[in-house]
């Protein structure tokens, strides 16, 4: 599966459009991580636990988007966008969407 965030495929021709495909993932970290994060808030610095959490759930969201595109018979996803929002306390929603196409 070819995934890009540009609007066309250099060197390839788009044969068919399948519309928007998307994937989302809502995740929370366990309390231990939250406590570690509040300590970090005194000293400053990177919250590695949260960085990990967000990239894991971003990968999960991407996986869901790819699965949806595959089920439609697409072989590429164009113009991919990410968006993050905090829906509940201690949880974040990662949403990723793009256009599924068949290219040759």
């Amino acid at each position: 599966m070819l995934i890009t965030n540009i609007e066309y495929l250099p060197g390839k021709e788009i044969k068919e459009h399948y519309g928007v495909v998307s994937g989302s993932s809502v995740r929370a970290k366990h309390v231990g991580r939250d406590i570690a994060a509040s300590f970090k808030n005194i000293f400053g610095g990177e919250l590695k636990g949260y960085t990990e959490l967000l990239s894991e759930s971003r990968d999960e969201a991407m996986g869901r988007m790819v699965a949806q595109a595959e089920s439609l018979g697409a072989n590429a996803i164009l113009n991919v966008r990410f968006s993050t929002s905090s829906v509940a306390a201690g949880a974040a929603e990662l949403y990723v969407y793009g256009t599924a196409v068949k290219a040759e």
Binding site: G45, T51, L54
Partner: peptide, 23 residues
């Protein structure tokens, strides 16, 4: 646009916290 072998989506992220003094 010539000579392109491959292209793919790449990403990077970071979460940085503020310290007590700065707050």
């Amino acid at each position: 646009e010539h000579m392109i072998a491959e292209y793919r989506l790449v990403n990077g992220s970071a979460v940085i916290a503020i310290d007590y003094f700065k707050r």
